[in-house]
Design a protein around this nucleic acid. Structure first.
Lengths: 217, 217
DNA sequence: CATGATGGAGAGTTCCACTCTCCAGAGATG
DNA sequence: CATCTCTGGAGAGTGGAACTCTCCATCATG
């Protein structure tokens, strides 16, 4: 298939597809001449993945590039590939020199790490971006309410673990192949968004019910 | 307090604070002369809220403006204020003319609505942005796996509802005041981020454990 | 009363995600 | 074969978001 057809199939302008090619998000097509190439279903699928990560997941193109690199890397497979993909999804990028991190932030990170490692006993790499995200969340909560500590996270950890168990049971093969890594990425991003939406709806629902049973001005 | 002190207290450059003032994110200080004004604790707190929503929640300034308007609006209180704030948090803005929405997207939205209203029986306004987010998520899932239907959302709805019940029990007063609306917003945004992080950590943990018990190349 | 800060407004900057323009070569059409 | 459209590649331009800088008349302070 040529680029015009790829554009039709995905609904993306040709200029955008070219841009993604240049940017390393979309793998090049099979070259048939110095200025000619053909594309296949894997290109359609990749473009769909890119749009999904951008629109549903709100990821930047830089982050999406990390994700597709993790998916494509032939040297990394199985559990390591899942880990790499999950790390690429994380919202944290910075990499500040640690000594410039504010003290309350550092304390919150330590507390989050202890919570994950000791209280939950989860086995996650020390560089997992979720650790830092958790620390940042704890620091933010504490800024508006100094009494907060990591125990506030307990119900969320419970819910997260339960959902992870449901997900591995119902969706994922035991031994991840390349394809399964991509499936994990898609499901993680989309169901993160769905869960957030459902949380907001549940809150609104409960607020409505509460105000009905005990009406207040 | 003058703007220089406000800048010191929050760590934000004076230029940025001026920009937020112009943009309607930060309420003006009490004017003492044509070019003089004083600020109070509420300005410090508001700036903290703005940074929190931007950094932890990833909200755009436009969205943050909607949120603070909902918090400030003296005509809207109690449950209506909570609803307004939650709606402002939603990631959906568009407002397309409905007939240009792709058919599969429209079908997914209808299915999501039926799921929320009929299966869950939740009482949420028809304009809740979570409805559309849910529809978009469903459409995205279906694009990579046509067999998916709304029942996949059941465990997520359960988890969301359970967390909402924990939250209302432990944190929120029965009758929300202005202050409580802001607390709800903070907790919603921060704990959304924390939950997403915990989900990623839980997945990584389970992948690690699974590969240990049944090692696979 | 000199110095430095202030509020307000406009212009400039940086980054991101495209989008446009151009070009020589390839392919399809008559 | 002539013409016309399409292609890959690369550079430049665009528009929005979120600042950041500059300027200025005014104001507070030592």
């Amino acid at each position: 298939m040529r680029i015009a057809e790829l554009s039709e199939r995905t609904g993306l302008p040709v200029a955008t597809i070219k841009f993604y090619l240049r940017d390393g998000l979309l793998m090049p097509g099979a070259a048939t001449a110095p200025n000619q190439a053909t594309y296949g279903e894997e290109h359609v699928e990749r473009l769909r993945l890119i749009r999904m990560l951008a629109e549903v997941g709100g990821l930047s193109l830089g982050r999406i590039r990390d994700v597709v690199r993790a998916i494509d890397d032939p040297a990394v497979r199985g559990q390591a590939a899942v880990r790499a993909a999950l790390h690429a999804l994380g919202p944290v990028r910075d990499g500040l020199p640690a000594e410039v991190v504010a003290p309350d932030e550092r304390r919150a990170r330590d507390e989050a790490d202890r919570f994950v490692d000791d209280e939950l006993g989860w086995q996650v790499s020390s560089s997992a971006p979720g650790r830092r995200a958790l620390g940042a969340a704890l620091a933010a909560l504490r800024r508006s309410d100094p009494d907060v500590d990591a125990s506030i996270l307990r119900p969320y950890a419970r819910a997260a673990d339960w959902l992870a168990s449901e997900e591995t049971e119902s969706f994922e093969a035991r031994v991840p192949t390349d394809d399964v890594v991509q499936r994990v990425v898609v499901r993680t991003v989309v169901l993160d968004a769905a869960l957030t939406a459902l949380r907001h709806l549940a809150r609104e629902h409960r607020a409505a019910v509460a105000s009905r049973t005990a009406p207040a001005g």
